[in-house]
Design a protein around this nucleic acid. Structure first.
Lengths: 350, 350
DNA sequence: GACACTAATGTAAACGTTTACACTTCGGAA
DNA sequence: TTCCGAAGTGTAAACGTTTACATTAGTGTC
């Protein structure tokens, strides 16, 4: 009585093809290493039975998962889409797979995701932001999983980052408004407690004000999740102030759009009455009326660089090297000098 | 000479704790099944060494990957974000993990992704759209992987779909424009060759025109990728026609936004000169001026239902049952009757 | 004709869990 | 006292590949 192998395994195929299991494995992984006619016979069989080898066993046996994990804080902001697609393309070309995970701005959820990634022994992790429990970094190191921080730069040099400089970029944006003559500048940004990018942008804003001897008014900063309707509400509040701002720096384009439409709805002209500057340079900022001035973030470039670094780390053991990426202020139609009456009013208060 | 186990394995921990490997495994998987003091001792050890078990071995040995795959055609459109997050929440509650993959509107890439998912023996797959090589469905069935189609309904009842009805929704939207008095209605939609949702919406548009005896003008339909700038260009072309449309149905909110701003830029008033209706009901449609009329898609509800169905399929073997989800037209400020002069002109042509 | 070398294939150990089953201990019921 | 069941733990097979090493056959060289 012939022992019948379980269908859908290499063993089973090997028996059908009259070769050993090793030959099947080789046919699948390194076709050149088997004789052409053997190969053909086996591939025909594989085709006919629609055989898909068990990747779990393969990954486990070869000790290579071929997967890079990417953790983004949200997928609703399309700026991460460009970033993700760049990474995906690079990895695919290198024969690696991308596992996209959404941490939803939750440290708790991110922790679980990182743990899962370690469990599945991914060969690299791309993180967003640096601010997290140091234990997580230790864990990644403990399991020799290369990682890289993106979208912000850690003050600790031991944490490799491939990113632009949030502080510098926000400094530039705020300074631009100051140089246009604005003295009453609002900031709408993300929730700094859970978002180090937002925190750095806020810090930059404060420091610029201080440098130009403009007093900091807590009422002019609004920290909110990146949802357009929330930003719209915040803008309404801001513009209903006794002395509304003449400029709003939004640390995110989504928020800037909320601010733009809300100002217009409240009959403020942009940029004549209020200037607005965003952050990210989403495609929509070019289409909106007036087109939005913003800070261009080279998301694709950052993605490419991060992916390349991890490919080298995973395949050649080259440690990830930090790298800074340049941003650029894009002046479009939503920024200008403050209105004259405000300038007059502020010099001769009523 | 004591045989030393490889660190970072259950064996190694077992030796350290002076128990068997089975006890370690049980402590990790079903803590209740081991004595409290044993458990404590082991957990302390696990904690101290930051031990993370090898999920590949676990998945492989237990024959359960605990993963559901989700394939979306793009991640730039935030409508998929809501969908994805709903799925993620449901799966997490059920102890399953979500693997998000982006097929980038490429059948080729999608095929590779599906293959990878089968290789890793995921316990379910959520697909977007039904239109793909039938071999892929066969493959999923062959490997007994439950799947469900979302965002559109297959004409073949053998393919389970949890979705709204694109044809019905687009019919409603087009009909609404007709009933407002429009006769010259443009359609901006996705590329129907690679997007069955776009194809169904186009079909609905044509059928409504036919039903109301409005001649179909090829020049009034624009098929384009869902990028706002491309849609803006298409709108420019449309509105520069000898006889520009008095209404534009955009089968996607992104495109509708491009159309809206472009019309305004060209000095057409919305809705006085042109009506615009979108599709998806993104949050931004409520904020824009005028707020955009659109078709509300219950993305979260669809995600919940799809996730629940796959959870039941994976865990209890319940076959996925098709289900239709309702959409709703949301009338906001971007739709109205056609302008009077057009109505006059059309009744007494020059 | 012996030898070295290569190409093609086979053998079998290893990867690190899970889990069915066996075993021991202990407390209580008869 | 014996017996039974439950609780706790151990043993070892199984999961389906990959791959180092062994084996065989074939080819060309001296």
């Amino acid at each position: 009585m012939k022992k019948t192998e379980k269908p859908g395994t290499l063993h089973w195929l090997a028996r059908k093809a009259g070769v050993s299991i090793a030959t099947i494995s080789r046919t699948l992984r390194r076709p050149d290493s088997v004789a052409p006619q053997t190969r053909q016979r086996i591939l025909a069989l594989v085709e006919r039975h629609r055989f898909v080898p068990d990747g779990r066993a393969s990954t486990f046996s070869s000790n290579r998962s071929g997967v890079i994990g990417l953790i983004v804080p949200t997928i609703s902001n399309s700026i991460y889409a460009e970033f993700t697609e760049a990474i995906q393309n690079r990895l695919q070309a290198a024969g690696l797979n991308l596992l996209i995970a959404n941490a939803n701005y939750s440290a708790e959820l991110e922790r679980e995701i990182i743990r899962k990634l370690i469990e599945s022994r991914v060969e690299g992790v791309i993180l967003t932001g640096y601010d997290r429990d140091p234990g997580l970094y230790q864990l990644l190191r403990r399991y020799k999983i290369p990682f890289v921080v993106t979208w912000s730069i850690s003050p600790k040099p031991s944490i490799p980052a491939i990113s632009f400089d949030n502080y510098a970029a926000a400094t530039e944006a705020t300074e631009l408004l100051v140089k246009l003559g604005h003295r009453r500048i609002a900031l709408i940004c993300g929730v700094t407690a859970i978002n180090d990018r937002a925190a750095q942008r806020l810090a930059a804003y404060r420091d610029v004000l201080r440098r130009y001897k403009i007093s900091f008014d807590r009422a002019l900063v609004a920290e909110h999740p990146f949802e357009i309707e929330i930003s719209a509400d915040a803008t309404t509040r801001l513009m209903s102030l006794q002395k509304p701002p003449t400029a709003i720096f939004c640390a995110n384009d989504i928020q800037a759009l909320g601010a733009l439409f809300t100002c217009q709805r409240l009959q403020f002209r942009v940029p004549d009455d209020v200037s607005i500057i965003g952050f990210d340079d989403l495609p929509i900022t070019r289409v909106v009326i007036p087109p939005l001035s913003t800070v261009h973030i080279p998301a694709a470039q950052m993605g490419n660089a991060a992916a390349d670094a991890l490919i080298d780390a995973a395949r050649k053991g080259i440690p990830v090297k930090s790298r800074k990426i340049d941003t650029e202020i894009i002046m479009r139609g939503s920024t200008g000098a403050p209105p004259a009456r405000v300038r007059i009013r502020s010099s001769s208060p009523s």
